[in-house]
Write a protein that binds this DNA or RNA. Sequence first.
DNA 1: GCCCGTATTGCAACGAGTTGCAATAGCATC
DNA 2: GATGCTATTGCAACTCGTTGCAATACGGGC
Lengths: 154, 154
Amino acid sequence: MGARSMDEAPAGWDEVATRLRARGLRWTAQRRTLVGVLAGTSGHVTGADLVERCRAVDPTTTPSTVYRTLDVLEDLGIVRHAHGADGREEFHVRPAADHGHLRCDRCLQVWEIGPDEARSLVAAIEAARGFTVDLSHLSISGRCAACREASPRG
Amino acid sequence: MGARSMDEAPAGWDEVATRLRARGLRWTAQRRTLVGVLAGTSGHVTGADLVERCRAVDPTTTPSTVYRTLDVLEDLGIVRHAHGADGREEFHVRPAADHGHLRCDRCLQVWEIGPDEARSLVAAIEAARGFTVDLSHLSISGRCAACREASPRG
DNA sequence: GCCCGTATTGCAACGAGTTGCAATAGCATC
DNA sequence: GATGCTATTGCAACTCGTTGCAATACGGGC
């Protein structure tokens, strides 16, 4: 792994323990493992992925514990999750800004959609329905430019 | 149930058999059951829902067969599926027009988003990235107006 | 009306994720 | 440092959905 380059942990993974305790929650070995894994993760991961990575650190890791802890961390705003095109859970770690995802059905590549890009949609729906869009849970499927050209109707 | 009011079966469920055979596919008892169930269904259903309804008609129904048949029917454009907020599969039958869904995290109600409402988003993404959005697979989460008022930050 | 290629089925095992419950272990307090 | 409340864990069983494989049966051709 080499020296971790301290890619500006968004708000300090060390605070997590404190924030948990402040809520009357507990800082356990299992949570330490998961938070450690998350701190070394960037971008998007599936739940199963995280379970596996935790197992690499601590082979006794149990799925239910990981998923339950992820719930707690989501409450704290430390991770967010959405569902991929296949419905599988997909977590992203401490997004700097809220963002959604754009996924090509064909090449399976994923891009992020920033607030500005989604603004028109968000605004339209807010105006028409008074509905507040949760951008971080938004996942849009379709066909990217490259794949469209490659197979216009495949 | 009363008399079914013939709510204009979108293009004729009777054609399904023909369209399957035209592709070299087969019209089996199991498919007849599922198509029958779909014909009597409107709006959105989960996969598990459909399995259950098929079982009501034919108790020997097997999940794998239902899901595989749904795949085939989706190829034919007869059903579409997206994933709910919990990632569960959600089918909708023969939509008159492509539409996405808007779901409130809190009250779990669902609304449809028509092409016009989504147009601004679709256009923005198409313009910026050349990405074609699959509206029928779009599922947006957030908080509806009523729930926002009821609990501003809950 | 029978034959045969192959699409389809049912089974069984699997993967992702969730949940109820009894046992364990944080951590605040004394 | 010991105590007690209760958050958390691990287990086992469950749900939804998918997949490989051998057996079945659809339906076009004779």
